[in-house]
């Protein structure tokens, strides 16, 4: 390999890391979704929400201001914490949530790594790792509230992981592939996943709400019980990162949801070999669908209070698990009889 291709290859990698689907995209997505969350809640609550920070665009820069403030605040590392775990865990949590984006395509010709037939598996593996670092965060803080938060996270993690995997597995059974692009192609040629298996879609939605800590499953960060839950002892950028992680996860999940259930880049198809119709517009379509899903999920904050831990765990092991098993059975039946 000559030196120039190597440099180009490095630049391309850097672009992936920094711009798309890397940190800049994440920043933009998180800023927009936090702003959207606060604005939607404010709309329901008969008020303006963030406004003065940038009056012309409705205060959309609010989260950016918060981020700036966090970035330059004093970093406090309490005496009795497990220092390395305390410092590294939020970063790793954020990193794994972000890396999962590599395997989630937002267009038919888009892939960061070499084309893979196992993108669904890779992304799921990375997504499932993140809560483990959340538990590390709670354990390292040496704070009783964080500790209880970590325990709650553990309980919920165990009780909602199986339904999550089963709901994806049932889609895998229907589409007969481990690749998102193939899955979308399957939907484009037949019906979107939400019609093929509504039970799996419902399970997935519930699991999304729970894993990203949206209401009514805002249990690990229940502020009237546990101050800030896991992140009680965190200040400055660490807290900023920790607060952003659920939103990154939310973005991941919403992309997966729109790819597996909402038909991906429908109405565009693979056949158009045009950079605009083949690459950019499908990407925009997927992201818009993901944003709609995210907006629906953050809207729940305005409607529901939070469940108790035991209620959430109980429903996880009973209704949601049952629902996911039914969704697998439905998929098997469909594959056997319909196709």
């Amino acid at each position: 390999m000559g030196i120039i291709p190597l440099i180009l290859w490095l630049i391309q990698d850097l672009l992936y890391i920094i711009i798309f689907p890397g940190l800049v995209t994440i920043l933009v997505v998180v800023v927009i979704i936090i702003w959207l969350e606060r604005k939607i809640a404010a709309k329901v609550q008969m008020r303006f929400g963030p406004l003065w920070v940038s009056k012309k665009i409705g205060g959309a820069l609010q989260s950016l201001a918060d981020l700036l403030r966090y970035s330059f605040q004093e970093v406090i590392i309490p005496e009795k914490t497990d220092k390395w775990a305390f410092i590294l865990a939020p970063g790793l949590m954020f990193a794994f949530a972000t890396i999962a984006l590599i395997f989630i395509p937002v267009g038919p010709y888009y892939s960061v790594l070499f084309p893979s037939y196992y993108t669904i598996l890779f992304s799921l593996a990375l997504i499932i790792i993140t809560p483990i670092f959340a538990i590390t965060v709670g354990w390292a803080s040496d704070n009783k509230f964080s500790f209880i938060g970590a325990l709650r996270e553990g309980f919920l993690l165990i009780s909602y992981e199986i339904p999550f995997l089963l709901s994806v597995v049932s889609m895998v059974i229907i589409f007969h592939t481990y690749d998102y692009i193939n899955a979308v192609q399957n939907q484009l040629s037949f019906l979107p996943g939400i019609i093929l298996n509504p039970l799996a879609a419902l399970t997935m939605l519930i699991v999304m709400i729970r894993t990203t800590g949206r209401f009514p499953f805002d249990i690990t960060e229940a502020d009237s019980e546990l101050v800030m839950g896991l992140f009680t002892e965190y200040s400055a950028l660490f807290f900023g990162v920790g607060m952003a992680t659920p939103y990154v996860e939310l973005y991941n999940f919403s992309l997966i949801f729109s790819l597996l259930f909402l038909g991906g880049w429908w109405p565009f198809t693979l056949n158009v070999m045009n950079p605009v119709y083949g690459l950019i517009l499908p990407g925009i379509i997927v992201v818009v669908k993901a944003f709609i899903v995210m907006a629906v999920l953050v809207f729940l904050r305005a409607v529901y209070p939070r469940y108790r831990l035991d209620q959430a765990v109980r429903s996880g092991w009973s209704y949601v698990l049952l629902l996911s098993i039914l969704s697998v059975i439905l998929s098997v039946v469909e594959v056997m009889f319909l196709r």
Binding site: R38, R47, G49, Q62, D66, V227
Partner: peptide
Amino acid sequence: ASPRFDLERLGFLPFGGPRQTN
């Protein structure tokens, strides 16, 4: 913090623990 006065307009958001606030 309530709708009529709504200090969240100014980015004023009452928040949990002392570590995250200024």
